[in-house]
Design a protein around this nucleic acid. Structure first.
Length: 404
DNA sequence: CTCGGCATCCTAT
DNA sequence: CTAACGATAGGATGCCGAG
């Protein structure tokens, strides 16, 4: 088996870079990347968090995921811009379409990351590092934002490499570099080793990725499940056989959640939200021509604890009213009336064939519902997603001023 | 003992 | 002083009860 060659390309501070580029294109003179700034939720809302920060913002100690309110305390001059996903999708498409020219085997890993299988191209491109520079410079020159490229023999190491020094850099992490470049890093830096795993590992005196790489596997098995233990051990040693795959897989679940501005205790208000959410989820199921067997309600009480309650149904559905009724029933069963800060709805156990079978049953009532739902879908596609929701859901805008 | 169903935990962007 | 705190999705894990 011949060695593979894998690139991982990651947009530096993606959302923020894209906002910066867009604003420059629209005649603004300030480049958001050069000042403390971030993409985040409305600073007036208690629940908004920092999504992406500029490098100058990082210097103030502002972290991704922290509340915008505390970020503003650290840096009162912080510029907070609201996310614009339309723009990000467009930028993402352009970014990926450039990279697409370089390989037939590319995997979109997220809106701003791709894996590229560059194996067997040494004839066309004898120097992978030079090629990576070419790619990243082209993106920078043509699209106006920078990327990091990680080069390795597998996806894991390519991903780890692209995370080294930023921005606008190319890094390699070949097998003979793993001990030098990866092992000194704290365990938490390992892809797949999050907060909780890192804490457990540190308690076992495994502080660096190197410590983990050399740890006794039986010790890991005593602290983690079988899969996690073996993943951690392999990953720390730079071992990963997962292939670059280009087909996008079908969704396994469709979910919506809403954090409310004020805690909710009113049953009617909860139902209202559930209806809006059922409508969104059902619309997405229909758009994908699938149905779901399992409906789950999710709620977060004011003590930040998440709860969920779900049930598998006899028949799969994509009908708003059915999903709504189920959600209300589940909520009624599980919720004891504590103040809620988040209410969500998820449809899973996806039935791919269900959509086709629909007409075989000829259930008139369902047909009617379907037509109604279709009509709503049409309104949505014409006027945007908000138009249907607006009628019913004031909560989303509660506390905002100057709105109609 | 295995499998499905369910709740929760963990991780990632 | 500490905790504060989104949306969405996939996978792991543990438990329980049925067969």
């Amino acid at each position: 088996m011949s060695d593979r060659l894998i690139f991982h390309v990651d947009v530096n501070s993606a959302f923020l870079s894209w906002e910066a580029v867009d604003r420059l294109c629209n005649g603004e003179t300030l480049d958001l990347r050069t000042v403390p700034s971030c993409v985040g939720g409305d600073p007036e809302r208690r629940t908004s968090i920092v999504s992406t920060k500029s490098i100058p913002a990082k210097k103030y100690g502002i972290e991704t995921g922290e509340p915008v309110a505390t970020a503003l305390r650290k840096c009162p001059d912080l510029i907070v811009v609201k996310p614009n996903f339309q723009l990000y999708k467009k930028m993402s498409r352009e970014f990926k379409s450039i990279l697409d020219e370089y390989t037939p085997l590319m995997q979109s890993f997220s809106i701003d990351e791709v894996f590229m299988d560059m194996s067997g191209m040494e004839r066309l491109h004898p120097d992978p590092i030079k090629l990576a520079h070419e790619m990243k410079d082209r993106i920078r020159d043509e699209l106006g934002f920078t990327v990091n490229v990680g080069i390795a023999r597998n996806k894991l190491c390519a991903k780890m490499a692209s995370d080294f020094e930023k921005p606008d850099k190319v890094h390699t992490l070949f097998p003979d570099e793993i001990a030098d470049k990866m092992w000194p890093l704290p365990v938490g830096e390992l892809f797949g080793c999050g907060k909780s795993t890192a804490k457990k590992l540190r308690e076992m005196h495994l502080n660096t990725i190197g410590d983990l790489a050399e740890a006794d596997e039986r010790m890991l098995l005593s602290a983690f499940g079988e899969k996690t233990a073996s993943y951690l051990h392999n990953a720390a040693n730079g071992i990963d056989d997962s292939p670059v795959v280009n087909e996008e897989r079908e969704a396994k679940s469709y979910s919506v959640e809403n954090t409310t501005e004020d805690d909710v205790t009113d049953f009617e208000e909860v139902n209202h939200l559930l209806l809006a959410e059922a409508d969104i989820v059902a619309g997405r199921l229909r758009a994908d021509e699938v149905k779901a067997f399992t409906i789950t309600v999710i709620y977060r009480t004011s003590d930040m604890k998440r709860h969920s309650h779900g049930k598998k149904m006899e028949n799969s559905t994509d009908i708003t009213s059915e999903i709504y009724d189920m959600a209300v029933k589940l909520m009624k069963e599980a919720w004891k009336g504590e103040p809620l800060r988040l209410i969500g709805l998820s449809a899973s156990d996806i039935d791919k064939d269900g959509f086709q079978q629909m007409s075989l049953f000829g259930e008139e009532e369902k047909e009617k519902q379907k037509n109604l739902d279709k009509a709503l879908d049409k309104i949505r596609s014409k006027y945007g997603n908000d138009s249907v929701m607006r009628a019913g859901v004031g909560v989303f805008r509660a506390g905002r001023k100057g709105n109609e």
